[in-house]
Design a protein around this nucleic acid. Sequence first.
DNA 1: TTTT
DNA 2: TTTT
Lengths: 112, 112, 112, 112
Amino acid sequence: MNHVRNSVRLIGNLGMNPDIRELGNGKKMARFSLATNESRRDAEGNRVTETSWHHLVAWGKSAEIAERFLHKGSEVAIEGKLTHRQYVDREGVKRQFTEIVVNDFLMLGSRQ
Amino acid sequence: MNHVRNSVRLIGNLGMNPDIRELGNGKKMARFSLATNESRRDAEGNRVTETSWHHLVAWGKSAEIAERFLHKGSEVAIEGKLTHRQYVDREGVKRQFTEIVVNDFLMLGSRQ
Amino acid sequence: MNHVRNSVRLIGNLGMNPDIRELGNGKKMARFSLATNESRRDAEGNRVTETSWHHLVAWGKSAEIAERFLHKGSEVAIEGKLTHRQYVDREGVKRQFTEIVVNDFLMLGSRQ
Amino acid sequence: MNHVRNSVRLIGNLGMNPDIRELGNGKKMARFSLATNESRRDAEGNRVTETSWHHLVAWGKSAEIAERFLHKGSEVAIEGKLTHRQYVDREGVKRQFTEIVVNDFLMLGSRQ
DNA sequence: TTTT
DNA sequence: TTTT
């Protein structure tokens, strides 16, 4: 319950169906990308949309709900924790990977 | 004012004095790292502290306030936007860089 | 920009069309109620929905957007500031009124 | 875990020591007031500080931590849920009471 | 007074 | 890769 120190809130759309893995202990993990679209005016005064793609991961119960209810295009609000992992890729290059560990999410616009 | 869609909140300490740049237009930019410390129990039940280091950038007025008041060790609460940039490093490796663009921050524990 | 100190985030539905007022200075004000629905299990294990009704007020540009796009039933995400006002009602009773001054909002599920 | 729908974040100071009650089931409850100070310029351009007093309540483990560590003047960051209760006072007047049910909090400026 |  |  450390979420006063580190909390991310995003509202956007899934770019793909969640990728579900089942771990050795039977616990599920769901990974997906979420696009947040920001609308602003550029130097010429035209409306432009800037899209950011965020990496999300959900565990356990949240992963199961994601598996059942989320799919490509789904609109969701999520709250999670910002994490950064270091790893070495296949070419031996040191890399950083930032992802949001989902604490809670809400499906939106579900009337469709 | 798109911060309903994309908002990060962190409370932690600066790892260094902010790095201040003045851009061509006279606008300032302040960069700094912020550590958030999360306390939890490990498998053996011992208290462990996990530290995450986040990259932050502030612009304009916020950068000026950061320059004047923030320094290594300062405790701050920040609200910002999660952004990801792609770039190619000196070795020609494609990389992603995640940083938080600060919208608002607050110095804490300032009674000292 | 004091929203690190005081910030409310709600996702819910309008109970009515916004009530629009135009002030002497031409600035608009929009008032509306927002329901947040929380689902939980009661002592007997049955799913129950608890609804909270919040009072919201938007000013200026936000009020104009609210007037044009929000109506009874609209699903929205809002970010605002928690405020409390004291007043004396017609019967001379001292009362407190809590409302959220909207900083930013987002219409959800707008595909309908 | 419904906090994507309804979440309040405040950073401020306690106006009093927490008021601790122990309920029949041995569970503790802590009540306290928190002041958030907002700095802004008035019509004449002078800096003015506006203080809002919020009612907070914490339960169980949070209440116990509040009892041990929080006191009048403590600086804290809290995350909670906005709730409204109706009641009838001793004079038979119907009233509303708004309070924030604390989910998580963090003591700040603890170096003192 | 909303929504699922 | 999403959405409007």
